[in-house]
Amino acid sequence: MGTENADDYLMLSGIQHDFFCKRQWALIHIEQYWKENELTVSGNILHKKVDQPFLKERRGNKFFSRAIPVISHKLKFVGKLDMVEFHKDKNGVEINGEKGCWKPIIIEYKNGKPKIYDYDRMQLVAEVIALEETLKVDIDKAYFFYNDIKRREEVIVTDDDRNKVLEASKEMMKHFNLGSTFEGESHKNCSKCSLIEYCMPRVTKKKKNIDNYLERFLL
């Protein structure tokens, strides 16, 4: 797969920021602002243990490769995968330096535990799309490994997931090209964000109902 215009592509990992908070994504990827906190530091430590591109493990009819570079021209994303587990499979693809055909399964490492929101999932789906393009193979599932629970969580990749990622990637590229940053909004997760002091999210309050106000204080 060629890498034409790859210098103009966005970082694949940014889609997780975009689904978590669009303003956070814009501050990091458009304004190039970043600050560490306890959560980001612990995440970096976890990924440093995983992202060792020259380390390959083999167990029976499968092997593991780490820090694999990928590119998606459909999404206009470039990135690096934590780990891909290759299983020997006649319906898989040929891999340089390996005999036979292999089926790839992405393993994405995350701090914490499974989330009820989509932002981790959408990053994993984007990784699947990028690896499919890179290796010219169909992939229907992938896994998270959450550090707090020390086990894998399977994710089945649906057409709806793929469409969400594709639409998000178009919006991200549009805003990146315009250089426009989203306005801030107050959210319960703001306190966990390392950029909160720079972001200064807008505090929104529910407007008082004038009739209730008059009834309570004047009648």
Rank of each mutant, 00 (worst) to 15 (best):
E31R: 15
E215V: 15
G60N: 01
I28S: 05
T158L: 05
Q52P: 08
I68S: 08
I156D: 13
D8I: 10
N111D: 13
Y213P: 00
F77G: 05
G2H: 12
F145H: 03
I45M: 09
G14D: 00
I45L: 06
M11V: 14
N5G: 08
N37L: 03
D118Q: 01
D148V: 01
T204H: 10
D118E: 00
S13A: 02
L178Q: 14
G184I: 02
L135W: 02
L39H: 10
A26G: 05
K164M: 05
A26C: 13
I107N: 02
E127Q: 14
R23P: 00
R152K: 12
W102F: 03
R152M: 07
C199I: 04
L27I: 00
G100Y: 08
I95C: 00
V203F: 07
N91H: 14
K76Q: 07
S194N: 06
E215N: 15
K206H: 02
Q16T: 02
Y117R: 04
Q123N: 09
I156G: 08
T3G: 07
S169Y: 09
G14H: 00
L219V: 12
E197D: 14
D159V: 03
S13D: 03
R152C: 05
Q16K: 13
F217D: 08
H17Q: 11
L131C: 08
K62N: 12
R151L: 06
E38L: 01
Q24Y: 10
I149E: 04
D89Q: 04
L166E: 11
K35T: 03
N147P: 10
D18W: 08
K99C: 09
H175Q: 07
D8G: 15
